[in-house]
Amino acid sequence: MSVGYRIHAIKVSTKREIRSTLYGVGIYVVLALIFLISSYVFVNSTLRSVADAGIQALTNPITSPLFVSVGLAATYLGLCSSLSISRDRDLGTMEVLFYGPVDSISYVLGKYFHQLLAYLVILVFSLINFYAISLVTNVGFSIDILSIMFLSIFLTSCMVSFGILLSVSTRRVIVSVVLFLALVLFFLVFSMVHTWIMSIAGQNLTPTMVYVRVILDNANNFIKWISPVDYFLRGMSAVFRQDPGGYALSILSSLIYSLVLLSLSVGMFQRKGVRR
């Protein structure tokens, strides 16, 4: 298939899918729920703790709810991409599409760009939401927050690619959904436990806890390359360190991660075929 036909197929597929997403209420309901959860976390962590302490030094407190929001939104879109491909295969839609001017590359990229466009819409809502919250609480809306928001596009890119790869490598909807959620949950929990263990690095730990820390740190050396969350966290850290090189590297590595996963997805499509 020529490049021109492929681009056309991607455009048509993306346009059709994004229209369907925006005309549905699902994305709006999910976004409202995510923002409500993050506001609850924000009020009960930051605002109360500053009020209790009287004075407190914090990294911009919008960061935590923003992280929760973009993390949940990216997971939601990753799940959507995983579901969408598995459903297309289950219903036989994929087979029908592949009889037409659609091949594995245009199909995978169509799904990928659809979710990315959906995320850009989410990003606009996030911008409005967090700007308004920072305004009413006076916590400040700095260029750092904008940088993190921009970085979240690449988190979504990783998450969606991850979802596509999982759905391509499994044949049943339920398996791909459970696998995606289990892995994302594992990455999130691992990241949280690792961060917590490392945050008590200065304290006296029992030898058992030290060995647990060593195991976690060694495991992290491996997981940080496969977990989409870790790519984002590295970028966030670079933002706070005012390290443009680290920030660019985080974006570049996220893009490479997405590219590798999408290439693997295309390869698996071609090997496994599109039939149920």
Binding site: A32, L36, S38, Y40, F42, V43, L47, F125, N129, T137
Partner: peptide, 16 residues
């Protein structure tokens, strides 16, 4: 820091 009251829960309902 300002105490936003219920506004902090009203703003997230905008997408809805």
């Amino acid at each position: 820091i300002k105490s936003p009251g219920n506004a902090v829960y009203a703003i997230p309902l905008f997408p809805f």
